[in-house]
């Protein structure tokens, strides 16, 4: 097992730390443009970290005639960083386009809340059911009365509108009554 003897340069390590810290700070912002800048900072920090993983700078990694006195740098980390930079570039372009589209639509590029999620959270705060459910309405004193009530409702609705499918209606009624029971 070969242990790499790679003492990183303190300056680089410091730069990586600053880039990550600044990036995290910007990522916590609401505006998409700032979030993007934060992402760019963090990914550059990540790239630098990988560069540090390859050891200190050396000669260009080209194999020449004769023995060179200066050791080569590690070309693999540079290849990896190059790939990561290209990916970051493409994604930056995409997020910029998205921020612009958001600005076109809303007049700002702020990351918005999930409307449906907030709606459900409000319902939960009021302790209201998340969906309208006729079967859960309190209609009688005891469970038996409620079950009878539900059953009557179905029977009535069958009489009133003949178009409704009778079998389905009844099935739903029974199911509903059980649901009420289960919820208690």
């Amino acid at each position: 097992m070969i242990v790499l003897d790679t003492v990183p340069s303190a300056a680089l390590a410091l730069v990586v730390g600053v880039l990550f810290a600044g990036g995290v700070y910007l990522l916590l912002e609401r505006s998409l443009t700032r979030v993007l800048l934060g992402f760019v900072l963090i990914s550059n920090g990540g790239n630098l970290a990988i560069l540090m993983a390859g050891g200190r700078a050396g000669a260009a990694p080209l194999v020449r005639e004769g023995e060179s006195q200066v050791p080569m740098s590690d070309p693999l980390v540079q290849a990896m960083i190059l790939t990561a930079i290209v990916i970051t570039l493409a994604l930056t372009a995409f997020v910029l386009a998205m921020a612009y589209r958001s600005w076109q639509l809303n007049g700002h590029d702020e990351v918005q809340d999930d409307v449906e999620d907030r709606r459900i959270a409000r319902l939960a705060a009021r302790n209201a059911p998340s969906y309208s459910d006729a079967d859960t309405a309190e209609t009688g004193e005891t469970l038996d009365e409620e079950a009878a009530e539900v059953h009557d409702d179905i029977e009535e609705s069958l009489v009133v509108q003949e178009t409704a499918a009778p079998r389905e209606g009844r099935a739903e009624g029974t199911e509903g009554a059980e649901g009420t029971e289960a919820r208690r």
């Binding site: 097992m1 070969i2 242990v3 790499l4 003897d5 790679t6 003492v7 390859g54 050891g55 200190r56 050396g58 990694p61 050791p71 080569m72 740098s73 590690d74 070309p75 693999l76």
Partner: peptide, 15 residues
Amino acid sequence: RGIGESDATTSEGSH
């Protein structure tokens, strides 16, 4: 399997 090219160079290169 232990001797990838990059290992040798980096371990030399760090001095």
